Simulated assay, not measured.
Amino acid sequence: MSPLPNVHRVWRRRLIALRSLLVLSLALALLTLRRFSPELLPPANVLAGLAVLLVPSLVAVCSLNARPSLQRTLLGVELTLDLLAVLILVQQLGGAANPLSFYLLVPLLLTALTQPPRAAWGLLVLTLAGYLLVGLWHSAPDPHSTLHALSRELSHTHGIGMGVVFVALAGVLTLLGQVIQSLTRDQQRQQERLMELAGRRERLYQVAATLAHQAHELNTPLSSLVMLADNARQEPGLPEATREDLAQIEALARRVAGRLRQTDAELPPRCDYGTLCERLRLHLRHLQPTLSLTVEGDPARTLEPAPDWFRVLANLGYNAIDAGAEQLVVRLEEDGRRLVLQVSDDGPRHQGPTEREGLGVGLALVEATLESLDATLRLDFHHQWSQARIEWSPPT
């Protein structure tokens, strides 16, 4: 699993863009104010304050490639420098009465979103202390300047109201950032647990698929052994001892094959088509969890003997999975007085009839079972799909 991206490094890159935009906006604002108030000439300390805003960006640029474990600490230091730089600029531009002071809420909120509680509440205290300091001690603008009208020609009550609103916003944003960060951590832990559960489920599916595949590989030769032993016993002229040995081999093979085909034993002799296909879906899911099974036809149609039909469909499903199929379509329809069961798959791994027909003895077992059911099997192969068409006359 690939490591998570360094979120704090991403935040530091965004802060670089945010500070650059702020400096550009302030410079344009000063130029605009000069058009309305020609006597307003930014003093050297104001220009120095704008330059100070870029200092944290220089720190970020020089340390973006630091270790991921240091990125959070560096981001905290950077936000603190950002706060101090804005305080210096606000102190030069009229103090807390200047609307620019509300930019102090930006590093405060980012700290609450990215730093632990101690750092977030510590920066809140530093922000409120700095806001109070620049409110009491600051450089007064020129009395006849536009900046003076912006920051000084306000009532005392208005200044107190701005302070109350600032303190309230600072506290709410800090609390909100911590809550969002806590919810994000909880969501991340839930996602990690879900990923872990998904990994465990995938491993269980792999184990189940391996066991099911091994059971299929054992069941196929065992079924062949039962069929060969039964045919050999029909041969005339066999010694009685040999016939008894063949009977014992057949009985042992049937017993082991019966243990491997527990699903067959659970099916009643008569079963409707919908239930049979649903049992097939659950059975094949252990072997190929991603296989999509589509069932078409009358689900209430009764099929008997159900274990034999299930064995036919299961072997066709096994061969489809061996061919790398992702989709399996089972369709039941009536053609006059005969029933047609059509099984199609999109297995791309074996594109020729020789390759598909040679997949073990599964198809031979299907043909043997269908022969006992008085049904016929026709196989059609294409480079994009394969199809088995079974026809039989249902008992009246």
Rank of each mutant, 00 (worst) to 15 (best):
D186Y: 04
R279T: 08
L128D: 10
L40V: 02
Q351G: 14
H156T: 13
L81D: 01
P221D: 00
S386H: 11
A320K: 02
H144R: 13
A48T: 13
R285L: 11
G122Y: 03
P269C: 03
V106K: 00
D142C: 05
Q206S: 15
Q178V: 04
V46P: 05
A149G: 07
P99C: 00
L373I: 00
I249P: 08
Q188M: 10
D308M: 11
L79H: 06
P3M: 12
I321V: 14
A170D: 14
P305S: 01
E196Q: 14
Q234M: 15
R233H: 05
T210D: 13
V10E: 11
R378E: 15
A306H: 03
G317W: 01
Q387I: 06
W385N: 06
L58H: 02
A306R: 02
A229T: 01
R185Y: 07
D264I: 00
V165Y: 09
R259G: 02
D298T: 03
G362N: 12
S25W: 13
L246R: 02
L373R: 01
L89S: 12
R193W: 06
T242R: 14
V61L: 09
P107Y: 01
D272S: 06
W385G: 04
A112L: 06
L365M: 14
H382Q: 14
R281Y: 06
F36R: 11
L280Q: 04
R34H: 12
G360F: 00
T157V: 09
L341C: 06
P221A: 00
S393L: 13
A300D: 12
A140H: 03
V330G: 03
R255V: 00
Q342L: 11
T210E: 07
Q214N: 10
I180T: 04
L84A: 15
V226G: 01
F310I: 07
V134Y: 03
L26D: 09
Q387E: 10
I160T: 08
A198P: 00
R338Q: 11
G161I: 13
I160P: 07
